[in-house]
Simulated assay, not measured.
Amino acid sequence: MKRFNELGIVVVLVALVVVIGLFHPAFLDRAQLLDVVRQASYVGVLACGMTYLLAMRELDLSVGSTYALSLIAGSMLMRAGVNPWLAALGGVAAGGVLGLVNGVLCNALQIPSIIATLGTLSVFRGLALALSDGRQVAGLPREDPFFTVVGGDLLGVPTSIWLLVAVAAALTVVFKHTPFGHRVRAIGSNPEAARFSGISIPRMRLQVLALSGALAGVAGVLTLGFFASGQPTIGQGYELQAIAAAIIGGTPLRGGSGTVWGSVIGTIILGTVASGLVYFGVPINWSLFATGIVILLAVALDALLRRRGSVEVS
Results as ranks from 00 to 15, higher is better:
G152S: 12
L154H: 08
H177W: 15
V137M: 11
V173S: 05
G151V: 06
R185E: 00
L163T: 05
V173F: 15
S160M: 07
G139D: 09
F175Y: 10
I161P: 07
V150A: 07
V149N: 00
D153P: 13
V167A: 11
Q136E: 02
L154F: 14
T178L: 13
W162T: 06
G134V: 09
L171P: 05
S160Y: 06
G151A: 12
P158C: 14
R183M: 09
G152L: 08
R185D: 00
V165E: 03
G156M: 10
S160P: 01
P141N: 13
A186V: 10
K176G: 09
T159S: 14
I187V: 15
V137E: 03
G188V: 05
P158E: 00
W162K: 04
A170E: 00
L171T: 01
P179A: 12
W162N: 05
V137W: 02
A166H: 08
V157T: 10
V150L: 12
A169Y: 07
G188K: 04
A166D: 04
A170L: 15
T172V: 12
L164T: 03
R185S: 06
G151F: 11
V173A: 14
L171F: 14
F180E: 01
V173W: 15
P145C: 12
P145N: 06
G188S: 07
D144M: 12
V167R: 05
G156K: 13
L155Q: 03
L163Q: 01
V174G: 06
L163S: 03
F180I: 08
P141D: 06
G156Y: 06
P141Y: 09
V184L: 11
D153A: 13
T178P: 09
A186E: 00
E143K: 12
S160D: 01
R183D: 12
G134R: 12
P179Y: 12
D144T: 11
V137S: 08
G181L: 10
P145L: 11
V150W: 01
P145W: 09
G156P: 01
F175K: 04
A168N: 06
W162P: 10
R142C: 03
F146R: 05
T178C: 14
V149K: 00
A168D: 01
V174A: 14
T148H: 13
L140V: 11
L140S: 05
G156A: 11
G134E: 03
R183F: 05
F146Y: 13
G156F: 07
P158D: 00
L154Q: 06
R142E: 08
G181E: 01
L154V: 13
A169V: 14
H177A: 14
G181A: 11
A186R: 01
A166T: 07
T148F: 15
G188Y: 06
V165Y: 04
F146D: 03
L140G: 09
F147H: 02
F180G: 02
F175H: 02
D144Q: 10
F147N: 03
V173C: 09
V149F: 15
A170N: 00
I161Y: 04
V165Q: 05
G152V: 08
V165L: 15
L164P: 10
V149M: 10
G181M: 09
D144F: 07
P158I: 07
L163R: 02
A186C: 11
A138E: 07
